[in-house]
Design a protein around this nucleic acid. Structure first.
Lengths: 314, 314
DNA sequence: CGCTGGATTAACCCTTTGCTTAAGGAGTAT
DNA sequence: ATACTCCTTAAGCAAAGGGTTAATCCAGCG
């Protein structure tokens, strides 16, 4: 399976015709057909079958197409990326968990970029807790911000940087009685991540999966909880505005308030990039503390980065 | 540039040593070194340089690594995807804009999957308005849900399915005076997407970029607006809970309420998959209307799908 | 039936990949 | 300085990629 074969496959699938694909590639028709044959043999699937109205995808082919398409696109991107690398700002990739992504990642990187005099081009990506150490050890991220991951992978530098308090919140107009295990829990994606602080709290309280509803983000989950649909989980300082406006109230439980801590994880000193060092250092400064404590606002459109990289499906 | 070469490069970068990479691949040391040499020549960049403590990445190499890594991972995934394709549920990929992703995509697909008797495995991905027609024509998505895209690309089937009313909202305790162009606008990512309904409204009102702050999602933007930091934009029926609780109030402007419409976009009938047809039909049913009108709640953890596919950076 | 457009197969060629072993440098540690 | 480790280069070889032209198959159609 080579990139050339994948490219031929993608073109045939998109154009619906071997002939057209051959024209587009500037090669003869059999060349394309042969590339297709090689792919078919490799995968043991016809991938594309001839039909009136053009070549149509088999089940296997339709799974392969988005993957192949992305591989081809990345191949082109690789050239451009290396070519542009020189004389351009250093790049830094930060991996964060969903809670951090929602509130602090963007303002934090915004502040960091400004402080570095735009010499570092930082971007963040969202991952589940278990993936953080993998991303770091594989050098797919330079810095990770999230729960403690020592033990998951040796040889990583994982130090605490920020303490916070995890609380359960609910509508101030509702009483929550009985065992917390039976309350309806309205949570952000961290509720589906057993390694997150939220996940650990749920485990301690013995909350079963069918008592949990997952929302796309924390603010939405809080808003649903404010409507009286159930309880939610929040870092106390992040939910402060909602508490102040009495949209939500803290609900005490056997295990909350629970003290938690964010950790910064990187490779050990000798294998770390300079940009990673800078961010690591920045995270200990009062300016960074301030952002984490009161992340506050959004960012200007020019600086806005979607919290995750959206290419195309896998 | 072949996948084998990229794989060798990735392994050397991760393990920090040609020797270890060769061991991991079960080949001789020069084999890896040669693959590396080919890549270096192709890109005109050393990519990895020898240093005490292992091979370290050049600027170009560090750009290439995540791309190469993803390509290698996708290569492995391709095999698995095709192999698993037979006897398994049909897959459908839905592309949506950020507003829809936040509120309706998950409940809608949840309802659709249930109604299809789990015979269709649907997932959604987030894209900007301008990307929707591209995703459809390239068969990277089967169905798109968002603003009207006729004209952007010929030969697509784009029909209206849902009418709604776009309003401006702000804290009920604040007065908003003067020209709307000078108010602070607190928006979700659609505020950075000129093709979205929100983007079009901002253009009509003449709101400059520096009056806009972008939040990671609409609920967060509304929450910030409720704190009195500015105004936000919302579909009236989606912000209804906040209006009912008097956290927010509608702010009239010259161009709002503005009537908008969601469109469903697919390939023309003869090139459409069966699953795409099913979803297209489902979207016109009262059940789907109900979900779009009152998307309401979250989904169970087992069904939760992050709104975008998060692999690794590009 | 026979024609025709389009996909495939066959036969053949050259280039590249990818692997080997052997030898050469370059840096580090003892 | 010497030995050691590790990356690189050189030379050679089998296999696969990727291209061509010519022949073949196959469905739709007059």
């Amino acid at each position: 399976m080579t990139l050339g074969q994948l490219n031929a496959f993608v073109l045939v699938a998109r154009l619906g015709s071997v002939t057209d694909a051959a024209k587009a590639l500037g090669v003869s028709e059999p060349a394309v057909s042969q590339a297709l044959a090689a792919l078919r043999q490799h995968h043991g699937d016809k991938l594309l079958i001839k039909r009136s109205g053009g070549m149509t995808l088999t089940a296997g082919g339709s799974r392969l197409l988005p993957i192949a398409s992305q591989m081809v696109a990345l191949g082109a991107e690789a050239d451009a990326a290396v070519r542009q690398a020189n004389g351009v700002a250093a790049r830094l990739q930060l991996a964060v968990t969903s809670e951090i992504a929602e509130f602090v990642a963007n303002p934090l990187l915004e502040a960091f970029t400004r402080r570095s005099g735009n010499a570092i081009d930082a971007s963040s990506g969202l991952a589940r807790t278990a993936e953080l150490p993998v991303l770091i050890t594989n050098r797919l991220a330079d810095v990770a911000l999230g729960p403690d991951v020592t033990g998951d992978a040796g040889d990583l530098d994982c130090t605490p940087i920020f303490r916070a308090s995890l609380v359960v919140v609910g509508s101030p107009h509702c009483r929550h009685q009985g065992s917390p295990a039976h309350w309806p829990w309205l949570l952000d994606p961290a509720g589906a991540d057993p390694g997150s602080d939220t996940g650990r709290l749920l485990a301690r309280l013995g909350v079963p999966d069918d008592a949990i509803q997952v929302f796309p983000n924390q603010t939405a989950a809080w808003s649903a909880a404010a409507s009286g649909g159930g309880v939610s989980v929040a870092l106390e300082h992040l939910v402060a505005p909602q508490l102040r406006r009495h949209e939500l109230a803290v609900v005490p439980t056997r295990h909350t308030p629970m003290s938690t801590c964010w950790y910064v994880t990187t490779l050990p000193t000798d294998r770390r990039t300079g940009a990673a060092n800078s961010l690591r250092h920045f995270l200990t400064t009062p300016a960074a503390m301030h952002v984490m404590r009161a992340p506050g606002s959004g960012v200007p459109p020019s600086r806005f980065r979607p919290p995750v990289y959206v290419t195309i499906w896998s």
